[in-house]
Design a protein around this nucleic acid. Structure first.
Lengths: 346, 346
DNA sequence: TTGTATGCGTTATCAA
DNA sequence: TTGATAACGCATACAA
């Protein structure tokens, strides 16, 4: 019952099979494959001929088993049908694969999925993890994962790891300021569900802008999108107010798109009756009529930067000192068609 | 220099460490971890206490090395910022991870990336591969991959593997028929770049509908989107024709969105001056004003079905006979606001 | 019920 | 320049 037994229909050739076919030892094959040198040209050619004619590919597990690093990185992202996530992911993934790391793309839409992927990352001994979901479902498991792995996060609040963000507060402040400069005073704010620092900062930007311009905050105008209607219902509720707002700012474009639908369904004209603004500058907002005035943040760039920083951290011989404060990217106000002075008749 | 030597700052504990800490042999630990039975309750508890207090997670590579299957599946998708892909991916990924397979999500936007991921799938000995990109860049490498792995494809033309698709021809036929029934005769067709059977079928649907209704095909009306402007330029060219079309059908919604922008930029009113239609029913088309009349295909369902079929194929003791003909999902015409009878003054 | 020994496919160390 | 052999961390057949 030798290993050469014809009856074991082994799916994959091993390095030993190649060695036998080439008439050398498996260490020689290994040396050829890894360009370790100390192989005569004749032997190299002989081995390579066998390797390529049989399309031999070394088993990655066996290889990693002996190594100290796996050269792989887990990327945790939320719902990728949301362009916000797909944009960050595209940036991060490009850098990671170009750096010869393997990206494990982890789609975490709920606690169970997050748990599944954390376990897998643990089992697979990833060198690093990049968080770009909106929040964390299993903090204890994350803590455990962080004990053996380098990490970085984008707009995700995880204590103890470097944090990349954009200027949420400033961006929101300036777009609210823009609305105020147009003459709006009844400005609503639709927040997302969840309790993240990103949302807090955006809300703070709204509050600061109002108070800096002597406008008192009306709690009626502060709403939360719910998970099912995603801002649609919040707009309907705002419209039913005895004194509805003249402008609505949504904390992100995803919600602004739902808000847009709600306004249209009520026959409200944008911007003449109500001004609408968002945050993120997702490309579908260009399809709106009028196009959405929004705040842009460099999502793709944030993804690439996060990946680069993570790889630097992984490859550093000394543990790098983590930046004490978050790395903030600038935002830009995109003035498009969805804002105008408030209608006089209201 | 024992393995317990304090100086080896090994990042991960091994099963042997756990065994030592629990005062048992490593095989006992293994039996506990895998619920193989034949372990006394007392021992089990003792081992589990050590395992959980140290957060021990077995090394997945070492485990897979001995196994015959890796329980992993590669998913090849195109640009995920395109909702077409993210929808299919979401469906497939959900089924795969729920079935305790690990999904390797492979983002293939060009030949180099495809090559990178094919190599990785080879090295990682995946049990199966699911293709949902638009085409294949490295047919030879794909062929090699298929030699050792089960595969299935969604709207991707790869000889020799089961193929899931929707009724491209019928869907297109019916939406063109809808335009004809409104009175259109000058109907343009904007195709995508590339040479895939999906595009061929959609084009064929267009041709058949025209000829079945006695309308001769005007080659001037058949255009191709280019990679940069993505349908925008094609529309501009159509508008500059001495006798421009009264309706434009785009082979997919992605192109239709660009076409929409082009029409707007020229101040063309939809549907009064020109009717516009698409294919795929992506959600951003709901933001259009008017909303796009389009053909829907069950993208999510196609993703889940493909994943289920693939897993069945992998787990079958006997090699399953591949369905000889593609599995076709039905399409549905979504009549929305972007189509109307042609304007009399033209 | 538990422990010992072997194998999985590589790479690395050491001889030859 | 090459080849034998020992890890790597786990599962498992076999012994006890």
């Amino acid at each position: 019952m030798h290993s050469a037994d014809q009856k074991d229909k082994k799916a994959y050739l091993t390095i030993e099979d190649i060695a036998a076919l080439a008439g050398v030892s498996k260490s020689t094959v290994s040396r050829v494959l890894n360009n370790s040198g100390f192989v005569s040209d004749a032997t190299r050619k002989k081995v390579m001929r066998v390797v390529s004619s049989h399309h031999y590919v070394p088993n990655g597990f066996a290889r990693d088993l002996g190594r100290t690093t796996t050269k792989s990185i887990g990327i945790f992202v939320g719902d990728i049908s949301n362009q916000y996530f797909s944009e960050i992911l595209a940036g991060a993934e490009a850098v990671i694969s170009r750096s010869a790391y393997f990206p494990f793309i982890c789609l975490v839409s709920n606690a169970r999925r997050e748990e599944f992927y954390i376990r897998e990352m643990l089992k697979r001994r990833v060198s690093g993890v990049l968080f770009a979901s909106t929040g964390i479902y299993n903090p204890d498991m994350i803590t455990q994962l962080l004990q053996t792995t380098s990490a970085i996060s984008i707009q995700t609040d995880i204590p103890g790891i470097p944090y990349i963000d954009c200027d949420n507060l400033g961006g929101t402040y300036r777009i609210i300021q823009h609305l105020i400069s147009l003459g709006h005073e009844r400005i609503a704010f639709i927040n997302s569900f969840g309790e993240t620092s990103v949302l807090e900062h955006r809300y703070q930007g709204y509050c600061n802008a109002l108070s800096d311009h002597g406008i008192s905050l009306n709690p009626q105008y502060v709403r939360r999108a719910d998970r099912t209607s995603n801002g649609y219902q919040a707009v309907i509720d705002l419209l039913n107010l005895p004194e509805p707002p003249t402008a609505i700012h949504c904390c992100n474009d995803h919600i602004a798109m739902s808000a847009y639908q709600a306004l249209r369904s009520r026959g409200i004209s944008i911007p003449h009756q109500i001004s609408l603004t968002g945050f993120d500058a997702l490309s579908p907002t260009l399809l709106m009529e009028p196009q959405l005035t929004t705040v842009s943040q460099p999502l793709h760039k944030m993804g690439t930067t996060a990946a680069e920083m993570l790889i630097a951290k992984i490859e550093a011989s000394q543990p790098l000192p983590d930046p004490s404060s978050p790395i903030l990217f600038p935002t830009e106000i995109l003035l498009r068609g969805s804002t105008a002075p408030p209608s006089v008749i209201l």
